[in-house]
Design a protein around this nucleic acid. Sequence first.
DNA 1: TTGTAAGCGTTATCAT
DNA 2: ATGATAACGCTTACAA
Lengths: 340, 340
Amino acid sequence: MTAPTPRHKRATIFDVAAEAGVSRGTVSRVLNGEPYVSAAAREAIEAAIAKVGYVRNTAARNLATQSSGAIALIVHEPDSVFIDDPNIGAILLGANAALSAADYQLVSLLIDDDRDSQRVTGYLGGGFVDGAIIVSAREGDPISQAIADLRLPAVMIGRPDNQSQLPWVGIDNRGAARRITERLVATGRRRVGMIAAGLDRDSGRDRLAGFRDALGASFDDTLVSRQPFYTYAAGVAGMAELLRAAPDIDGVFAASDAVAAGALEALRGAGRRVPADIGVVGFDDSTWALRAQPALSTVRQPAGQLGARAAELVLDQVRSGGRPADGALLATEVVWRDSA
Amino acid sequence: MTAPTPRHKRATIFDVAAEAGVSRGTVSRVLNGEPYVSAAAREAIEAAIAKVGYVRNTAARNLATQSSGAIALIVHEPDSVFIDDPNIGAILLGANAALSAADYQLVSLLIDDDRDSQRVTGYLGGGFVDGAIIVSAREGDPISQAIADLRLPAVMIGRPDNQSQLPWVGIDNRGAARRITERLVATGRRRVGMIAAGLDRDSGRDRLAGFRDALGASFDDTLVSRQPFYTYAAGVAGMAELLRAAPDIDGVFAASDAVAAGALEALRGAGRRVPADIGVVGFDDSTWALRAQPALSTVRQPAGQLGARAAELVLDQVRSGGRPADGALLATEVVWRDSA
DNA sequence: TTGTAAGCGTTATCAT
DNA sequence: ATGATAACGCTTACAA
């Protein structure tokens, strides 16, 4: 057992005031950049602050102001997916940049199991944050419910389920899926299938719907493989399934780039050439797209902007005390490379 | 402008006390699971809590207890690297699991620029967290300095620079690099080079040192390409450089899997077969390793355990008030696949 | 322009 | 076993 390092007693406003020979009120004013402080006082206080090494105690400040300068980013994913998904990283960065510009602190909270879920709920209710951004909520998510109960300003990324009244920002998954499928068909493919994934959330369902939109009457449900997650493994399995169901398949829309990469692997194993024998397209324009051989044609998702926009929307609510009417739908872009 | 939703005034201990007909002190005791409360009082209070919908105000609690049940995980990376690096995700998950088990809340703080750095420093000093885990600190990092000044319990992941006295956990980069290089040489390669990266941090330097250890007298500095980051692009550039400097090269140790994947790409472009003409090995056993064609032989890094171990070490400090003597070195494992 | 003092919601010490 | 009451460190009217 080591001797406990004596934790330095932190300087308070009181110490600063004493050092500068003014009252605590004046110190507070300087700290908050308020007007009506004499230059002399301000200087003395700034010197004192530096001298005693003062840093504000945010807990106390929060208690007094009934607010913290922080916004939560709640990520709710099964571990494996979280590690693989580059969009989450980009969203994080985008949100961080936007909040940082407004001098807010982003704190990301990870939900991995029920226990986490409970703790996070407590955290949110504890005055630690002024608002929240929720990534990839599932239907009937207890967190979304808790946030509604707390009346905490929040926005979701990705369209939430109907019950929830939270504003959201997202992309038009359905339209984008339709557009890229149409483009795939336009390259002359006759038997095009889809490896669908994440059907328990809006993005998954909408991408499938868009695929269906594009095919219209020629849609054939035996040509769609349904997989639980947006993973490489799902792509391998899905493609194998499709190859079995329809050996003459010549086009595939994979629900994400990771899935498409897996499909490529399965195709390679089956000896099919891409794009000569079969065209494949993905979704996300993640790092997978460029890593793949051949590089994937895909839909570019503005993940960074998604995060930034979400951040702005929470901030709006925080500042106005109200809820904005609606979320925003951000534009996507089809990027065409070598896989189709 | 929407009509501001009236933010429900939250119930306090006071309300609960009134409702239950007891004093605030007793309520507090129940909340903290302390002994010496009558069953009757406890029941009345629990009922009251449910009835008025009470949730603890953590800011107030922190102020009173001088502690928060939270630990920060500080990630300090340039954006692009952050998105690409699967180790960070795994570390996050490992730390979260360990903290969660101890009923601590993990909050991750991202540092993207100087402004972030400043804000995070304030956050840490503000009583928001009881301790911190720092990922990938660079030499002369202002955050590490701030943490030392604050005497905040902390541990770094990855060996820090000498000045810092913080405990750390890491892997034996040097030993692992030596082992995998030896193994590469054992496959019969005669001219083996290295694409080094991240030489501004310990991991990068140690991997190079290990490479050198393995080669001993036959080490040839013209066969090492030095790249700034652990990226795919670095691999492409580094391999091209090596091919130019030594056309007869037949083995390469890439400083990370991402770098190795880039090297594979360059090799493909140059018409060299892997592993027939040249063997390549990576480091990390990240998702890159399995995505690559052929799959990479590499060093498995126990990223999740790294996070978990770090979390335990901070918690130790938080609870004891002291600093543990030393950090831990976690074991790595060479995994041999098809690329060499 | 500055000082004073009353909160903010909990915990913790002392009596009782 | 429970009730008062003084911290905790800061903000913010209100006075001066």
